[in-house]
Amino acid sequence: MNFDKEFNARGLSCPLPIVKTKKALVDMTSGQVLKVISTDAGSLKDMAAFAEQTGNPLLSTVEENGEYVFYVKKK
């Protein structure tokens, strides 16, 4: 999937993947896609909850080799 910016959240624990995803989105423009790579198993549910509550659509979630890759579209 194409993306405009990548945020490497590997090794970070709750709440950093979410709080810093929010920060990464700040300077992006509407419609751009942020790729987030996390190793925190909790972020699987948290990222979906973040997307739902902030209205930034979660386009895709991929789990591979103990990593979680999220594509979040800026609303």
Partner: peptide, 11 residues
Amino acid sequence: FILGSTAAALG
């Protein structure tokens, strides 16, 4: 601090 920063990130 965890709940505060997260809630702020959620708007």
